[in-house]
Simulated scan of single mutants.
Amino acid sequence: MSNIYNNSYPSKSLLSTQNIVLACMGWAILALLYFLLFSAQIPTQTAEGIKPLRAEWYIIGTNIFEAIAYLGSGILCLRNWRSQQIVTGRNVWLAIGIGMLSFFLGGIFFGYTEIVLKEEPFPSIGDIFFVITYLFVGFAMISAVLSKRINLEPWQWLIIIAIAVSGSALAWLISSQTPSAESQIAPWATQIAPILNWFYVVSDVLLLIIATALLLAFWGGRVSLSWRMIAAAAFSLYIADMWQKFATNSILEYQSGGILEVFYVWSGVLFGMGAVLEYDASLLRSRRDRGRKRN
């Protein structure tokens, strides 16, 4: 795998760092254009009458954009785990990789429940995998912060506190709203839904705080760019989750596929970009170390 990033033959490799980053950016832009152009609801005849709905093919497309983003990200993270030269730590990338693949599987079950079964997708089997995602990604990000041995300035701690307070307040405000309509879900789902909802809220806020710490801790370091991408991915996941909770509670019979759900796709893309940038930086550092030993 190390030959893939051999700078002596950059034009011969389709999997060079530049090509993978460009592919990630292209996927993010295509997703944005797709959401912008086709997310509008159109009047549709249903059994209950005419309702504004999004086309089914559009909903399928949003699931495909999201699935490919997280599947690709998971593969790139696991590649970091297999590398002996990775800077941050192989277990960190193993945990993120498992989290990304779990989100991919969760999205598959979510889409299947909503599109094929025509049922309320929350809660569903997919939530098992979403919970796994938060647990593993949270563990990985905490491990990365601890490995940095943070020594922040007072003003940096103030930034973390400010974001923690504002992020918690927004999450609480949105999640405490009364749902616009009761969904037809099973009794067991009615009981577990509040627990899952608050688990996601607390996890989103914690990831937001850790992401802020990562930005400050890794700023200006050798692998700073890769972890800025990881932090941006956590911010994107927070935005997408907050929007979905707000829309579900405030919009009558909300149908997934809203424009801000593009942040789910961007989150997966940014995790992948962070992985490939760290892989490249780690190999470059390894080559430099070998060069010093020869000299």
Rank of each mutant, 00 (worst) to 15 (best):
S102L: 01
L37A: 10
S236P: 08
N151R: 08
S147P: 11
G111R: 12
V269P: 02
V262D: 02
F122P: 05
W198R: 12
N63R: 03
Q156Y: 09
I161G: 07
V137K: 00
I50Q: 07
W227H: 08
N295P: 10
A31I: 06
L36H: 04
F38M: 09
F104T: 08
N80H: 08
L135G: 07
M1R: 11
W57Q: 06
W227S: 00
S256R: 03
A211E: 14
A144V: 08
F218A: 00
A189W: 02
F122S: 11
A40I: 06
A55V: 05
L284G: 04
S102K: 01
G61Q: 02
S39G: 07
S102I: 01
L252H: 12
L206S: 06
G167K: 10
S124D: 12
P121N: 13
N3W: 15
L196C: 09
S267H: 03
N63G: 13
F271Q: 02
Q41W: 06
I150Y: 07
F103E: 07
K51F: 04
M273K: 02
R82W: 03
N19R: 15
L277P: 01
I60P: 07
A186W: 14
I4L: 13
N3R: 13
S124C: 13
S166F: 07
S8L: 12
P179G: 13
W57T: 11
L277W: 10
L94W: 04
F109E: 06
N80R: 06
T46R: 10
Y279K: 00
Y238P: 01
L135F: 10
I150A: 13
Y279N: 06
A232I: 10
G97R: 08
L135Q: 05
K148W: 04
L215E: 14
I96V: 10
G99A: 00
P154S: 12
V202M: 11
I185K: 11
L225P: 00
V276A: 02
E120L: 06
R292W: 01
A144N: 03
K118T: 14
V21Q: 13
Y70G: 00
L71R: 12
A234K: 00
